[in-house]
């Protein structure tokens, strides 16, 4: 266990059950389920595939090659919360779920270029924001109209930080930013949630809510 979430130093500890997910220590369960919540999902695996033959690299691993840009494509056959999106002519963002099926499918990532393709794990700060006041908070932190995004993967700013953003049913706002902004972003969202009498929830809590939104 040698990985740390960018938000590691500010994650709540008291009365939270902590555990390890993919070599990273995170809060798994919160003492209670608040009406508005924010979760640190940084342990999940995210991979950037970039280069002239990025599509070929994906196809060789039995993965689809989406035609549309910036549209999230769920890979339910690989498990819950696995999705990918094309983010350029030779660029794809892959997102693994808690089961790690995508990582298993990809195997060890190449150290260098492979047929002109670079495959890189991304140590993003990944955050999920949801619950009763999540939409109102996002209206404060993000300048985009997030009510009509559909399956889009957005590159935008939240609290002034560049993020990728996906809006899921609920709405639940899934976003990731470069790790150097991670602590600031999580801290800002955490303060916002707490102003709404909400709280941080654990990694496992998030998937429990995902299964049972009520």
């Amino acid at each position: 266990m040698n990985r740390l979430s960018p938000a590691h130093d500010i994650l709540p500890r008291e009365r939270f059950d902590w555990g390890e997910v993919r070599g990273m220590a995170v809060p798994l369960k919160a003492p209670q389920r608040p009406a508005t919540w924010v979760a640190d999902l940084s342990p999940l695996t995210r991979v950037l595939v970039k280069g002239g033959d990025a599509a070929g690299w994906l196809a060789a691993r039995g993965l689809p090659v989406p035609e549309d840009w910036f549209v999230c494509r769920d890979l339910a056959e690989l498990g819950d919360d696995v999705f990918m999106a094309r983010t350029g002519s030779g660029e794809f963002l892959l997102h693994d779920g808690p089961g790690g099926a995508l990582a298993e499918r990809l195997g060890p990532l190449p150290e260098g270029l492979e047929n002109g393709t670079r495959v890189l794990a991304r140590d993003d700060q990944e955050v999920a924001l949801g619950g009763e006041h999540a939409a109102m908070l996002m209206a404060e932190f993000c300048a985009l109209d997030l009510s009509t995004t559909g399956d889009a993967l957005l590159y935008t700013r939240v609290a002034g930080v560049g993020v990728w953003l996906r809006v899921e049913a609920g709405p639940v706002y899934r976003m990731g930013c470069e790790p150097s902004y991670g602590e600031f972003l999580f801290e800002t969202l955490m303060h916002g949630v707490r102003e709404m009498q909400g709280e941080v929830i654990g990694f496992s809590d998030f998937y429990t809510i995902r299964e049972d939104p009520k």
Partner: peptide, 17 residues
């Protein structure tokens, strides 16, 4: 409004602190 001035911290920030 709310103070939103992004701040970047390195992975070792907590150790430094």
């Amino acid at each position: 409004g709310r103070r939103l001035r992004p701040e970047r911290r390195t992975a070792m920030h907590g150790w430094h602190k």
